[in-house]
Design a protein around this nucleic acid. Structure first.
Lengths: 261, 261
DNA sequence: AAATTATTGAATAATTTATTCGTAATTCGT
DNA sequence: ACGAATTACGAATAAATTATTCAATAATTT
């Protein structure tokens, strides 16, 4: 749960002042060390109370907690950047090398953003589910298929409605022993949200794997997993996004395997 | 000017209460994180003002400064201990961590084994193909679907025969402007080999992505890409194998994207 | 032993942080 | 496009935390 990452990921979702704060902190992380809430407020040009509210919106108890978290993730980041980077998946001049770096970055971010309790809960949910329905927005269909396949291979009862017309019907037939997995990228898809909502209200356990932000689909979820998008051009971003989704899924599957083995 | 060191060094010259404080902090460094001055005072059994004075005696402006300094030197120490081990994609104890290391290893091997000319050729072949047929052995079906999806999204004419019964028919209709992509794991599948063979003989370009070894399918290929399997138990190995296949595929797609962009 | 100095905590002042509440801006539904 | 509802924002203020003062006591020096 890296604080700076979280800030960057949420940036788009923030209001004007909140974004000002986020940008300032991202740009002047080291300054925060000796700023009080009102000093920060002055530096950014907002009120002290906005600073506190911003801290709380990000999930901290208040400004001091945010400060510490920022400090933590700043220290953490500078370590990760220092060494290793660059030798790992980023060899010479092959199509795999260019991708390697970026992919590594996205995967690292994705690993960081997901809380291990949520992951553990997801593994547990998969293991104990009677039936699993997979639903996905168009951009994540291929990932959904992959997930469904893996689940079937694990011996889970999993269905994925390719076309999407039957999603509601299937969802309605789920009970509280069952699991609904929602995969989506930018999280809006109305029909998906409705499926999640209805299922959730009926007591079905809902697991979502979405872009990290305030997300319509994840609201109706019991277990929330996230992907942090990269900042490349659209096509590459989509590719990396799926790659990160796949990574999380692989993690879940291997988690289930571990428990079984 | 490491704060914890300083504390230890000064220990002998401190008064009774100050020493109590120093000892407590040295023993319970991580607790300090969420202690206020009075909580610390209570925990140690001294007054709140003693805590502040202790902070100042050590050279800090007050308690918050001490706290930060302690945190700094604690974080510094734990970093120094960790050193490279374990933090990469393998953070703490999440399902993603166990996988992270192994996955990274497999991907690295896979990146290393593939010659960049072959990769470049593959990208070129995809880019210039009129139609692309994807064929896969059962273990790689989900990867094949993923590839097909990506190709379609790129605007390539791609087909994948889910059931596999039509593979021959489709293959027979390919011409030498076309590309056949063979995905398989252990490379034996007779029907696949035959498809590859026949297509190859008809002048169709054949691209194979297989396990690295002497491989019946790759013999009949123009472009040969490989995956190096891991040495885990079967289920995990399969998972990692597919993950590596996906990585190569992502590399190809991003290669094609780069050329277009 | 008396004087000086250092240590300590209760009380309190100062500062920092968090909340409340009224207004302004934005979003949503029609 | 309009009004209703939600959300964002900051001034005022409450709450909490931190720092200082001061008086009492303990330690040290002479």
């Amino acid at each position: 749960m890296n604080c700076l990452l979280k800030m960057r990921a949420m940036r788009e979702q923030l209001s004007v002042n909140e974004r000002k704060l986020a940008d300032f902190i991202l740009d002047n992380t080291q300054l925060l060390r000796d700023y009080s809430s009102s000093q920060l407020a002055d530096a950014v040009g907002v009120s002290q109370s906005s600073v506190v509210k911003f801290s709380q919106k990000l999930g901290y108890r208040g400004y001091p907690s945010l400060k510490l978290a920022v400090y933590e993730s700043y220290a953490g980041a500078s370590i990760a950047n220092d060494e290793d980077q660059s030798r790992h998946l980023g060899q010479a001049n092959s199509p795999l090398s260019t991708l390697g770096q970026k992919k590594l970055e996205v995967l690292e971010n994705t690993v960081n953003i997901n809380e291990s309790e949520q992951l553990a809960a997801a593994v547990q949910a998969i293991r104990s589910a009677r039936c699993i329905q997979v639903s996905a927005c168009p951009g994540s269909v291929s990932v959904a298929r992959y997930l469904t396949h893996q689940l079937l291979e694990l011996g889970c009862w999993a269905v994925f409605d390719e076309g999407g017309q039957l999603q509601h019907k299937i969802a309605d037939s789920l009970s509280d022993d069952d699991l609904l997995c929602i995969l989506c990228d930018f999280g809006g898809e109305e029909s998906l949200v409705e499926v999640a909502n209805r299922a959730h209200e009926h007591g079905v356990k809902v697991l979502s794997l979405t872009r990290y932000n305030y997300n319509a689909a994840s609201i109706h979820s019991d277990i929330r997993l996230y992907v942090v998008p990269s900042e490349d051009d659209e096509a590459l971003q989509r590719l990396l996004f799926r790659s990160a989704q796949l990574h999380v899924i692989e993690g879940l599957i291997s988690g289930v395997l571990e428990g079984n083995g």
